[in-house]
């Protein structure tokens, strides 16, 4: 009895263990909600947008903005494509902007939960806090630093928060929530 109490007490007072990031298995995909704030220097307030995101390992990231209006953005290893109601509005190829490739890789590894690979890739260490972790990446390469000065990622089970600091005082802030792992087929079906 006493033994049992001690165990219970110990359990209550011990520091909670660090939440293990969730890793996507084969055939799995990630879906969630995002809120994005773009802080542009000289603007009165940040530009806010919200929507759903889908990460499908083979296809890349799909960014479906719902507010203030519907737009869809796809980012994969080839580059970025944006469209409004099927009407293409922007394409940027990764071959022309090497920074895009890095950004895609960061998103891919972090959303999948492949943290150790990301650490190797970026040459930085994950910092563990009590219930969360964070990662800070400042590119030294000129090609990358032209596009962003700093990437800051925070998460627990999933990636929760991403900050992209750009040049000239601009920065983007993205909050992820309601993430859930679903079979890849289910998401692909829902997207159709």
């Amino acid at each position: 009895m006493l033994k049992g109490l001690i165990v219970l007490l110990l359990l209550c007072f011990s520091t909670p263990s660090v939440a293990a990031p969730i890793r996507l298995k084969d055939g799995e995909a990630l879906q969630g909600h995002f809120t994005q704030l773009r802080h542009l220097s000289g603007f009165e307030r940040p530009i806010k947008s919200q929507g759903q995101f889908y990460y499908i390992p083979e296809k890349g990231l799909i960014w479906q903005t719902e507010k203030p209006f519907n737009t869809r953005l796809e980012i994969n290893k080839d580059g970025i494509r944006q469209s409004i109601e099927g009407d293409e509005t922007m394409t940027i190829s990764a071959a022309q902007f090497p920074a895009l490739k890095t950004l895609h890789e960061v998103l891919e590894y972090s959303l999948r939960g492949n943290w150790s690979e990301l650490e190797v890739k970026l040459g930085t260490k994950l910092i563990h806090n009590k219930t969360s972790w964070s990662l800070l990446f400042r590119p030294s390469d000129e090609k990358l630093s032209m596009a962003f000065k700093e990437l800051h990622l925070e998460g627990s089970a999933y990636l929760d928060h991403l900050i992209i600091k750009k040049t000239k005082g601009d920065w983007d802030e993205i909050h992820f929530s309601n993430q859930m792992v679903l079979p890849q087929d289910a998401i692909l079906k829902a997207l159709k």
């Binding site: 220097s41 903005t65 209006f69 737009t71 944006q82 509005t89 596009a147 005082g169």
Partner: peptide, 13 residues
Amino acid sequence: MAQIMSPFGMSNA
């Protein structure tokens, strides 16, 4: 607007 909102867009302030 869409382009400006785009998180990974190349547009700056």
